[in-house]
Design a protein around this nucleic acid. Sequence first.
DNA 1: TACATCCATCGTATAAATACGATGAATGTG
DNA 2: CACATTCATCGTATTTATACGATGGATGTA
Lengths: 110, 110
Amino acid sequence: MVDQIDGRGLGGGNSVEMAAIFAALSNPARIDILRHIACHNDCGCKDITDVLPLAQSTVSQHIKVLVEANILRTEAIHPRSRYVINEDVLKDLAEVTNTFLGSCCKETWC
Amino acid sequence: MVDQIDGRGLGGGNSVEMAAIFAALSNPARIDILRHIACHNDCGCKDITDVLPLAQSTVSQHIKVLVEANILRTEAIHPRSRYVINEDVLKDLAEVTNTFLGSCCKETWC
DNA sequence: TACATCCATCGTATAAATACGATGAATGTG
DNA sequence: CACATTCATCGTATTTATACGATGGATGTA
């Protein structure tokens, strides 16, 4: 238990935070939801439910996970909720992921 | 259920495969394990167990998940098992992640 | 040979994730 | 106003993940 590392910030994101984002992306339905939102403007829960083989409540729950992970933003327009991808977060995520994955064992983390 | 997308390949990786890799990275202990292996050559299960607040069996189980996701490779040298990061896989992953995250809604997937 | 070290696996307990239907709130439409 | 649409939430059932101790196999060392 010496030289413990369990979760402290290294090279742009601690383990717990990184794992949380990856966890939000760790479900195929959520990947599909992100893709659908990315490809279709003004997209609500119903639109996604029409396209995925899942119940509306399940889709809503997946969306909640993505919102809580700050990957999606809600814009409650009119009667419906519209979801927008938080591009800033995804850019950061792409960078952190790149740093983490690409530079395997540079002095960055050590 | 028209225009269904549930998991078919789009822009460099289908949803199920992508989710599987993210799932392998969705645990803080596994992030720490990857970091430790990346930073220390000739690294075995015991070395990681010494550094994380987890039982040896738990660490071994996490390693198994990473190996099955093809993120780690096992090199059974001498008495011990040594784990090596599969850099090719991580490079691909970084690229797919970048494509997926960075190019939110280019014609790539649509 | 006897013993220690390293590691994978098994069995198990507990917690978390996933999915569904039912329900109700909020907002449009006839 | 009555009704439909959209969505979030609740309760629940089932599956999966996480963690541990115990055990045994394989390999070094005395």
